[in-house]
């Protein structure tokens, strides 16, 4: 609606889809290697990249209003608050040992 009738190609959607497939195969292969300490950060980095592709292009956030951006960023901000405050507790429970 925001783009006002100009003709759009479906090609970007297919490119995003191919990128998502490549990232899925990458995370599958690296997941099978059992990389130890790096397994979790790598898997999460790939998942974040995939979700950015979905949010920006499939969900059209890249063409959306600023208010939409605020809501999208806010939802992940709350997720961050929940993580940080929870782990501020769990990660410091053994404080006396150090």
């Amino acid at each position: 609606m925001a783009e006002n009738g100009e003709r759009h190609s479906a090609l970007p959607y297919f490119l995003v889809w191919v990128a998502l497939l490549i990232l899925t195969i990458t995370t599958f292969l690296t997941g099978r290697m059992h990389l130890g300490t790096w397994a979790l950060p790598l898997a999460l980095a790939i998942a974040v990249t995939k979700s950015l592709l979905v949010i920006l292009f499939f969900m059209h956030v890249i063409h959306s209003t600023r208010l939409t951006w605020v809501v999208v960023i806010a939802s992940f901000l709350w997720l961050g608050v929940l993580f940080v405050l929870t782990f501020a507790d769990y990660l410091t429970r053994m404080w006396k040992i150090y």
């Binding site: 995370t27 898997a43 979700s51 949010i55």
Partner: peptide
């Protein structure tokens, strides 16, 4: 897309 988005995170956490 949100359903897809959540699965994108569930997949590595639960399977990989």
């Amino acid at each position: 897309h949100l359903v897809d988005l959540i699965w994108i995170f569930l997949y590595p956490l639960l399977y990989l």
